[in-house]
Write a protein that binds this DNA or RNA. Structure first.
Lengths: 131, 131
DNA sequence: CTTGACCTTCCAGTAGATGGAAGCCCTATC
DNA sequence: GATAGGGCTTCCATCTACTGGAAGGTCAAG
């Protein structure tokens, strides 16, 4: 099938699919006219990529997951380890963002937010950890 | 002062400071030998940038904040609006990451994580919203 | 035969830096 | 005066994961 069809079936933009080919994530056959020709298996891999990317795995992690996907003898523990590492990473990001939110909220709360120029947010940004 | 000193005083790598100059965020004087020569005011701006970047403001937002910083007649409401928009953005990201974490956690929990190859995580990635 | 949708390649740009190479400049030491 | 080091300069490349667009080939319908 052509890239447009593969795109619909995998929920990936055609541009992205070509890019994935560029970085050696997937290598479709070519039809005689030079068009890419995707098999059902290719589409499965594309969907696999779509799903793992949407779950926040990086391209390199996807590469690793794909190789495990291809490996009949993989241990599920290997997959689980990657997932757990990703969970920990997501957790760290959440904590970081919550800290950020608290700081910003505290600043915004103290700002009267009117026509006057004096502003605690600006003061904080300007002071910026002068000791 | 030289860039090395400005770097220490602003907690920004010299590379980053040069980059900020490249994108017109700051324009230091030049000494006769061609070295960048930072004033106290420059360092304040650098610290301002360091702090606002660390609070998650984009470069363009920093640019805007800096112009407000320079504006004696700014309204604190303008600053507060930017901060509130950023808070909302951070909130959206947190929600998104929490959804991600829940999905990943559910997958990981169902995976026995041993030597056997069968793995619910892989199954999910492979199934990937086939209807 | 033409139109329009689809496909191809290639090049550039996004955000925000960061790494490295080649080459000055400055200070200290011998 | 020579030299060694550290710091400074510019410029170019690289990273992530795409996305946009131009120029042009292909295909099916009317």
């Amino acid at each position: 099938m052509n890239i447009g069809t593969a795109s619909k079936q995998s929920s990936l933009p055609a541009k992205t699919i070509r890019y994935y080919e560029d970085i050696d994530l997937i290598r479709p056959a070519r039809a005689e006219n030079g068009y890419r020709d995707y098999s059902e298996i290719d589409v499965h891999r594309l969907r696999f990529l779509q799903r793992s990317r949407s779950l926040g795995f990086t391209i390199d992690e996807c590469r690793l997951l794909l190789s495990l996907y291809d490996d009949e003898n993989r241990a599920s523990a290997d997959v689980k380890a990657i997932a757990k590492a990703k969970i920990a990473e997501v957790d760290r990001k959440i904590v970081e963002l919550e800290g950020l939110k608290d700081t910003l909220s505290a600043l915004a709360q103290n700002c009267h937010g009117d026509e006057r120029p004096d502003c605690p947010i600006m003061d904080d940004l300007a002071r910026a950890h002068e000791e």
